[in-house]
Design a binder for these strands. Structure first.
Length: 722
DNA sequence: TGTCATCCGTTATAGACAGCATGTC
DNA sequence: CTATAACGGATGACA
């Protein structure tokens, strides 16, 4: 089917033609009809087979007819990917905005945008804050809807869609899914046309590798030259033919070890020119302006030989760097944990799945679901570059080969299932429903639950006991009042708005009744909430954590714990945050706590969010604590001692530069006012740009152009500093 | 004596979302 | 009810 035959605005067709899109893939062709007619559609087709294009077209079509769209994605990184895609249509007068936790579109009302891209949590949060434009939506896109299956985040997506459906029954819903067994049930739930297909733009060959030979699912075989290491052999094989390779393993440590090994083999076959470029890139990485860490150094060493590793311990900057250099073709191989399978689109000619099990603390190593393996395999084959993609699963023992063939290659992905029936999910979502007034009576609560995917497969009454428990809990803890129907208390409303687990709110309230007033006590309190996951206790940790635990004060005492280990894990987590605000170097934290620099960032983010919540709750329960709490906030954000707070308020100045200024005698705003740009720019970590920036910000009479230039520069700096 | 290969017991384990400030028609 | 890659120290082989 040709794009020009579609009943769409000719300008859209023109734009698509510019992008080189003239024909639709078969599953797209099948979906586009109902999608443009405004019908609900569920598309279950493999990744990178053009699901999004159908959604884009429906969205644009609707917007051109004065509609408004919400595009829900699971990851912040995907939000910016979609944003970039949709921006291509801005010339049609479509205004696209992004709204995710750490970054909101410049216009806070979001109202003036025609398309708003949000994570599912943000969409939920927008509903909680009663954003009225949600009632005006004409289209809702739910990307990766199979994530409803995720026990942690699935219920949010499910509830958000259910609420949107109730608030705004006329809005068209487009749900995009990976291939799953029961996508038809999703379609049923959403009252949608169901389109399922295995079609891929680049054909995929799947196979098992064992002892030097790949056995493909179609019966063909291919032998691979052995270089002494299974995985490296597979990498060399494809790189020699000009391809790239993506390898999935199940631990972070393995990504680093394997990428090192692969690199040792790769280095012999690299072209001299790319070898030179890699050396440059590697050096550039080491001289980056952000805090040097041993992980960064290791990454830089691996990059030198065209093999990189990728996992959630990397900073965002490092991840982007790895991804970009793989896309450009310079990096030949990435060894990654599953982060990469769920994240942005990063195809390679060959995908190797080395580990088919994952560690579970309760059961040891358990097999990973077929759906996940398919998701990883789906990254094989770059449209427009490769004629076919190869997904190769590794057999380690003689019997594995047959097992893998049968249980993975020839197996259908599993069915997905709602996880809304679980207590924590219900706690959170029942409260928010009551707090926003979406649900006011038992009757309405029932009808709301019955509108979810959960209820489609499970009878309401099977969980009515849990629901009653949850309602009782919410009442007892003073989140809601049961009178004539349900009503949220102020505490309940704040909890819902702050987007924390009600259980967290209970913990924080309790902490606010405590006597201590040390930074550590507050940090521990937030680490004691279910919203902040604790660090693992490693064998060597017990001694120092116990000692530390004994010497600190608490708002929540360890007498309250059944499980001492639990408490110690919280103490360890609080200790990480403490080290951060005491300006311990990133690398030292990395080593002491066994985390990556990216993990530090994540925990700091969570701490900021929870500390903010605690500050807000202190206004209700104990105003005397508000001062200490709000003083702690910027310290957490920037990772600095009190004395640097003045300096860190400048754009472009973080913990490292602030410390540099301070230790050279520039301790306050006043000191900087008196300082000379030349002197400043001679300090370590501070160049002429930064020095001028500081002066500019001190200036007082900053013109708009200068302000803009400054903003631009500081954005540049932020990017580098990541 | 130094270097490398091999063996063996020990160790640690994937991922990542959310709040808020502020002004204008 | 369920595992295993990677590391580090110890030992052994060889120049």
């Amino acid at each position: 089917m040709k794009v020009s035959d579609l009943e769409i605005d000719p300008r859209i067709a023109e734009l698509l033609a510019e992008e080189g899109i003239k024909k639709l893939y078969p599953p797209q062709a099948e979906a586009i009809g109902p999608a443009l007619e405004g019908k609900n559609v569920v598309m279950a087709i493999p990744t990178a087979s053009g699901k999004s294009l159908v959604a884009y077209l429906a969205v644009i079509q609707s917007v051109l007819r004065k509609g408004k769209a919400l595009y829900i994605v699971p990851l912040r990184a995907l939000a910016s990917e979609k944003y970039e895609d949709l921006k291509a249509f801005e010339s049609l007068g479509i205004r696209v905005g992004v709204s995710v936790g750490d970054y909101d579109a410049p216009d806070p009302t979001l109202e003036k945008f025609d398309v708003i891209i949000a994570t599912s949590e943000k969409a939920d949060s927008l509903l909680r804050h009663r954003a009225h434009w949600l009632k005006e939506l004409s289209v809702v896109v739910a990307d990766e809807i199979h994530l409803i299956n995720d026990p942690g985040r699935g219920p949010t997506l499910e509830v958000t869609l259910s609420k949107l459906k109730q608030i705004n029954p006329r809005a068209q819903i487009l749900a995009l899914s990976a291939t799953i067994k029961n996508s038809n049930e999703i379609a049923e739930w959403l009252n949608a046309d169901h389109i399922a297909s295995d079609w891929r733009p680049v054909p995929l060959k799947e196979g098992v590798f064992y002892e030097g030979e790949i056995s493909f699912e179609d019966g063909t075989k291919k032998s691979v030259a052995d270089c002494g290491d299974d995985v490296s052999s597979l990498v060399l094989d494809v790189v020699k033919e000009g391809g790239q390779c993506l390898i999935f393993v199940n631990t972070r440590r393995s990504t680093e070890a394997l990428s090192g090994r692969v690199g040792m083999h790769l280095k012999d076959i690299l072209e001299p020119t790319s070898s030179k470029e890699l050396a440059m890139l590697s050096r550039k990485l080491q001289s980056r302006q952000d805090e040097p860490t041993s992980l960064g150094a290791r990454l830089s060493r691996r990059i030198r030989y065209a093999a990189a590793f990728h996992h959630a311990g990397l900073t965002n900057g490092q991840r982007k760097m790895v991804e970009a250099n793989f896309k450009s073709g310079l990096v030949k191989c990435i060894v990654a944990t599953p982060t990469l399978a769920a994240g942005i689109n990063l195809p390679a000619r060959r995908v190797v799945v080395r580990d088919l099990t994952r560690y579970d603390p309760n059961y040891g190593n358990v097999p990973i679901p077929v759906m996940e393996v398919k998701q990883m395999s789906g990254r094989a084959g770059r449209p427009q570059f490769d004629t076919e993609g190869e997904a190769i699963l590794l057999a380690k023992k003689p019997g594995d080969s047959a097992f893998i063939m049968e249980n993975y290659l020839l197996s259908e992905p599993e069915s997905i299932d709602s996880k809304l029936g679980q207590r924590p999910a219900l706690r959170m979502h029942i409260l928010s429903s009551i707090a926003t007034g979406h649900v006011r009576t038992e009757e309405e609560l029932k009808s709301f639950i019955e509108s979810t995917f959960f209820a489609q497969k499970t009878d309401f009454w099977t969980i009515s006991d849990i629901i009653n428990d949850v309602l009782e809990f919410l009442t007892e803890e003073d989140f809601i009042e049961a009178g004539e129907g349900y009503k949220a208390t102020f505490f309940g409303k704040r909890t819902s708005d702050l987007y924390i687990d009600p259980l967290s709110a209970v913990t924080l309230r309790k902490a606010l009744g405590g006597k201590s007033d040390t930074a550590f006590a507050y940090l521990h309190a937030i680490c004691a909430t279910p919203d902040v996951p604790t660090l693992y206790l490693r064998r060597g940790d017990y001694e120092w954590v116990e000692e530390l635990a004994a010497n600190e004060e608490y708002l929540i005492d360890y007498d309250d714990y059944d499980d001492y280990e639990f408490f110690l894990a919280e103490v360890k987590t609080a200790a990480l945050l403490q080290s951060w605000i005491e300006e311990e170097s990133a690398d030292a934290i990395t080593k002491r706590f066994g985390v990556g620099p990216g993990d530090i960032r994540r925990w700091v983010d969570m701490a900021e969010w929870l500390m903010h919540s605690m500050t807000e709750l202190s206004r209700i329960f104990d105003k005397s604590k508000s001062r200490t709490l709000s003083a702690l906030m910027p310290r957490i954000r920037y990772g600095v001692k009190k004395e640097l707070l003045d300096l860190v308020s400048f754009r472009g100045i973080g913990r490292a530069r602030a410390r540099s200024l301070f230790s050279h005698g520039y301790k306050t705003r006043e000191d900087l006012k008196k300082a000379d740009v030349k002197d400043l720019s001679r300090l370590p970590l501070i160049g002429t740009t930064i020095a001028r920036n500081i002066k500019l910000q001190l200036g007082g009479s900053v013109t708009i152009e200068e302000e803009e230039k400054m903003g631009g520069q500081s954005i540049l700096h932020d990017f580098q500093a990541e």
